[in-house]
Structure formats: C-alpha cells, structure tokens
Write a protein that binds this DNA or RNA. Structure first.
Lengths: 110, 110
DNA sequence: AATTAATACCTAAGTATCTTGGGTATTTGT
DNA sequence: ACAAATACCCAAGATACTTAGGTATTAATT
C-alpha cells in the first residue's frame, strides 16, 4: 500500500468504511477515492486491494454485483449485514489503536 | 504484539520513543513499561521485541551496555545519534499516518 | 522444602499483509 | 498510431509479527 509499514492491517478498515459511506464501489474506484481523499498521501496498490476484496468477500463481509459499463465489467462491492457489524468493530479497534499511540507517544508531563 | 494487525510496524517507533524519553532501558523493562503506560491494553511479546531490538542495533540506531544485577545480566539499550534522528522521522510518520486515518475515517460532512 | 511466579535473556516455524512486477483487455486522449 | 487511463487479476518475495518453545536466576507461595 505504501512505503511505510504502519499501514499494514489498516486496508480492510479503510475499504469497509468507504463502502459503509458510499454504499457500493468497485476496486479501481476505491484506489482513486483514497488517493483523492488523502490528497495523494496514501496510494493503495492494486496488488494489495484485489486480494483484500476477495478475502472480505470470502469471509462474507462483502457481496458483489457485476455491471458492464463501456463494454468493461465492473465489480461493485457492498457490505453484507456481517460486513456492517465488522466495520463498526474495526473502526473501534482503529480508534483504540490511535488512543494507545497517543498515550505512548505523547506521555502526559507527570 | 497483539491480536490486531494494526500494530504491525509501530513497534520500532514505540521502542525508539521510549528510549528517547527514558535514556536507556532493557528489554524486559520495555515490555513492563508499555503494559503500564497503556493500562494493559497493549502487550508487547518478547518474541517480537528481542528481534526488533537486535534489528535496530544492527542498523546502528541503538547501542548496548550490559550490566549485571542480582547475578542476572541486563542489556541496556540506548539511542545512537542516528537513532535519535530516526526517532524523529518515525514519530513524524506516525503522526502522518494518524492524520491520514482521521481524514479517511472521519470525512468532513461535505 | 518444593513448587510456582517473576525476572531476564533468546530463537525458530508459521502466518498475515503487504510490495513488486508482472498480465489481459477496452476506451480515451494526443 | 501510440500512450494513458480504465478495469480486472495473480504470483513471488519481503517484512513483521504470533506462537511456542528454550535457558537460567531470584522471589514468593504452599
């Protein structure tokens, strides 16, 4: 996804949250959207994204709907009920991670 | 380090920042300190920590000083000059990561 | 006195997630 | 005509961890 190792483990959270907000998206669109939102600071590689989408689908968190636009197939992904629940869980874990990092990296002046 | 994949890539940053603040620490002490600071929410496993310390030493970011306390050897680690520089870099990367996550996960209501 | 927990170090095999570097095919812009 | 953008995909390798051990001393518990 990026040079930095930090982003490892955050891709699923990002994808699920985007789908949660947008309703449905296709892979290529997700890469564009993330790049736009973060002003190019975060670039999701397709080598990371597609396997992740397939994994989330296999886990029953996403469903697929194929549409053909301009003679090219698009695979739209959207959250299942379990996917919605998992999104909440992962967002809470991310918040907890950030809280813990703030505690560790900005210790209160005792 | 933890169940969650999120923490991958953050261990070096945590270790360097702790050493930056405390001056010198030994491995076991680091595991205790992190557990204390985070109120048990983050537990660093030794299987993760020791290889990381050795890696940081091999990269010239840490130096070692062995002391014997209660007949048991302690390996105190402390930052080299390069280690201090790298600490600044990694802390900035962590801040950038958190900023990007906030942008992605809390999009401003357009 | 014997056992367990705590202190203090370590490694190796396995797993997960990513990067890198490809591949296919159509459409749009130069 | 060619390059860039759109749109999907996979496989090999790298990295960072988890899990599950191992050694040895000291302190606490039964």
């Amino acid at each position: 996804m990026q040079k930095e190792q930090l982003y490892k483990g955050s891709l699923s959270t990002i994808v699920l949250k985007l789908l949660n907000d947008k309703g449905k998206m296709y892979g290529y669109q997700i890469t564009r959207e993330v790049e736009t939102i973060t002003a190019g600071k975060l670039v999701i590689t397709e080598g990371a994204l597609y396997p992740t989408l397939h994994k989330l689908e296999a886990k029953g968190l996403l469903s697929v709907e194929i549409e053909t636009v301009n003679n090219r197939p698009r695979k739209y992904y959207f959250l299942t009920e379990n996917g919605k629940k998992e999104t909440v869980t992962l967002l809470n874990e991310m918040k907890a991670f950030i809280r813990n990092m703030n505690v560790l990296l900005n210790p209160k002046p005792a």
